[in-house]
Amino acid sequence: MTAFDPEAPETPHDPLDLHPASDEDGGAPQAATRKQVRKEQRMMLFKSPGFIIGVLIVGFWVLSAVWPSLLTTYGPDEFVDAPPRTGPSSEAWLGTDGVGRDVYTRIIYGARPILIVAPLATAIAIVMGTFLGLVMGYYRGWVDEILSRIIEAILSIPVILMAILVVFTFGRSRPVVIFTIAILFVPAITRTIRSAAIAESELDYVTSAKMRGESGVFIVSREILPNVTGLVVVELTVRLGYAVFTYATLAFLGLVGTNITTADWGIDVSQNYEQIVRDVWWPSIFPAMAIASLVIGVNLITDSIDKALKS
């Protein structure tokens, strides 16, 4: 799995091709065609407005997470020159919260926890899910049968409930939250990759690889995996959106293990939403909009990639 490169030369899909070196009708033009397709897909992706908007939104939040002091002069716990619960003004662009901290600054700093947890959890889940899905889909057999049933059982409980149960028993801390989200995403990813692997296993190129006497490890990692890469990428971005969603919800429910004074979008919404009925909407609505914008940004990227791959 590690020695995988999307740009690696492809195995010719036609196993009966007897003129591999010829430029006119051999394997080389086929590889070039595939490369060309990928290039065209990429060009189409970079031109699609959804993708550009998505990258701009996500890019802004990544910048906030990496270098917050570039975007704001205050600190996240600093009290600003305006009384608590002041609406948006020139001192505090997005107003101040219940104790007089700058809402804008807290949103900038609040990007960090969600952008640490969500991508890490997604990466772990994608690696595990792709591995399991490929192995189960290629080898089938009773192990596949049992794992499929387990996956179905886990999928029958809403992710957020299972997350609550696990975080509750394992203790609230950031590593626990990351691994919980990762493990809970594995079943869905495995199911998608597994059915793709089953479909691929029935194609001629896999049969011919088997006839060449290639090992299962080689067939799974060098033959099938490159052909499901597109699906893996789509699944990666889809799950990233869900991971943002799940982390924000867990933070809102107070289950992420950090202090309630930590700048964190979900925590800030939960700490301030009760003031909405007293017309103090800015300390909760702005972080809520931050959560929404990040999820929508990720989904715009997902959708554009999906469209480009299907074109």
Binding site: G241, F245, T249, F252, W281, I291, V295
Partner: peptide, 22 residues
Amino acid sequence: GLAFSSIPDFVAGVFLLAFLAV
């Protein structure tokens, strides 16, 4: 539909509090 369906439920709820309930 797509834009709204990706928003967490509590975020939608908080928006409704501010824009409808108040």
